[in-house]
């Protein structure tokens, strides 16, 4: 008997869930503002690009996207289980693979900014 490796993905799931619960309402509100043509000062393209260009901004963006991806992946795995799909290993491999590819792509694109 030992602690299952599931603890690692659960840790990422929990961290991502906590973070996105705080951040996503704000992100949705900002998107709505921008869609309505009221771009708050500081959210113009140049400012956002400068934010994403600095290593602090890069790190913050990476953390948020990385954790959200793993949160979504683990949540999907649980949803499959709840819907009665009994192929947990295949589902887990598929969803975590997508999250891993997303993580690498995030790092790549952030690096290029």
């Amino acid at each position: 008997m030992s602690i299952a490796r599931k603890s690692v993905v659960w840790g990422l799931f929990a961290a991502g869930g906590t973070l996105s619960a705080f951040l996503f309402p704000a992100v949705i509100a900002l998107f709505l503002l921008v869609a309505l043509g009221r771009v708050p000062p500081g959210l113009e393209f140049a400012n956002l690009q400068a934010f994403a260009g600095h290593w602090v901004g890069k790190s913050a963006l990476f953390l948020v996207i990385f954790l959200s991806l793993w949160h979504a992946a683990h949540r999907l795995r649980v949803v499959f289980h709840d819907f009665g799909v009994r192929r947990d290993k295949a589902v887990a491999n598929a969803v975590y693979l997508v999250a891993a590819i997303g993580t690498v792509m995030t790092a790549f694109y952030l690096y290029r900014i």
């Binding site: 008997m1 030992s2 602690i3 299952a4 599931k6 603890s7 659960w10 709840d82």
Partner: peptide, 15 residues
């Protein structure tokens, strides 16, 4: 206890 209860059929199956 965690060695047993945080194993595969332990806490992680709770959604």
């Amino acid at each position: 206890r965690l060695d047993i209860l945080a194993d595969h059929d332990g806490v992680w199956d709770c959604s």
